[in-house]
């Protein structure tokens, strides 16, 4: 049991809706784990539970041996897990550089952050270079394309120097060329001694980058394994394409409205 991040029967219920239902997962050091599933499967909810935006209904999330479930978001970041958002959420009134500086100055514990604003700014500039926004440091987020803002999300999260980076659909909504640059970026992030969980709908991206893929449907984990195996898994195909089920695998918990 040397996993960097582990979840033990993590559940999140919203009233009668089991958005995340008894999910076990683990992420090894240096691994990229793809998290897929149809819309409404609970992927983003699972992210929110891991990163402390919402507390789990039950279950444990263990990061480097410490139970982080239920910790507030900022403490989870300090414990070493940082997320990006599916719908980008830059600080609109801060410059692009300052957005990253916030990640650097607040995302780390006191001993690991630069002592001066100048130090933080030069680190932020390096990160912007790394994600390919180096020439936009003084602009405001609204001036970026969607791809640029997604890169900014990544740079800001990288500023926190997390052990685990959780990427929520960084590629969706981008054109093929932009997708390719983001995929390259994700690969190079791994070189920085980080492990990644990525939610993604763009199959080429997630299948191409991930070491392992986990599939959620109606809040439950329905499959897990290497990308090649997952893409042939009948349960996964069923969840995505909604093939006529001979037998319902998951009892419907009053969530009929969720089209698969």
């Amino acid at each position: 049991m040397t996993a960097l991040l582990e979840g033990h029967s993590v559940s999140k219920h919203f009233g009668g809706l089991k958005a995340v239902d008894e999910v076990d997962f683990h992420l090894d050091e240096g691994e990229i784990l793809g998290l897929i599933g149809p819309n409404g499967a609970g992927k983003t909810t699972l992210f929110s539970v891991i990163t402390g935006s919402i507390p789990p209904t039950s279950g444990r999330v263990v990061l480097e041996g410490k139970d982080i479930a239920g910790r507030p978001a900022h403490r989870v970041v300090h414990s070493g897990a940082c997320r990006t958002h599916q719908i980008v959420r830059p600080f609109a009134r801060l410059t692009i550089l300052e957005n990253v500086v916030v990640g650097i100055l607040y995302g780390r514990t006191a001993g690991h952050r630069p002592k001066t604003m100048g130090g933080a700014r030069s680190e932020a500039r390096d990160l912007l270079d790394f994600v390919g926004l180096g020439d936009r440091a003084a602009s405001f987020p609204a001036e970026l394309t969607l791809a640029g803002r997604k890169k900014l999300e990544v740079a800001r999260a990288l500023g926190a120097r997390p052990r685990v980076l959780l990427l929520d659909e960084v590629v969706s909504g981008l054109n093929p060329v932009e997708t390719q640059t983001l995929v390259e970026l994700i690969r190079s992030v791994r070189q920085r001694d980080m492990s990644i969980i990525m939610i993604e709908h763009v199959m080429q991206a997630v299948m191409g980058v991930s070491d392992r893929v986990m599939v959620l449907d109606y809040g439950k984990k329905i499959a897990e394994g290497p990308p090649g195996q997952i893409s042939r898994d009948p349960r996964v195909i069923e969840a995505y394409l909604g093939e006529e089920p001979e037998e319902t695998e998951n009892p419907d918990d009053g969530t009929e409205s969720q089209g698969a």
């Binding site: 978001a73 600080f91 500086v101 100055l105 995302g107 604003m117």
Partner: peptide, 24 residues
């Protein structure tokens, strides 16, 4: 102008996103 100020402006901009990068 200090570190605190950036954090405050981040809170003003988006309190949840601020939490997600470590601002309490």
């Amino acid at each position: 102008k200090s570190r605190i100020g950036l954090g405050l402006l981040a809170i003003k901009g988006d309190v949840d996103a601020a939490g997600d990068v470590g601002v309490s």
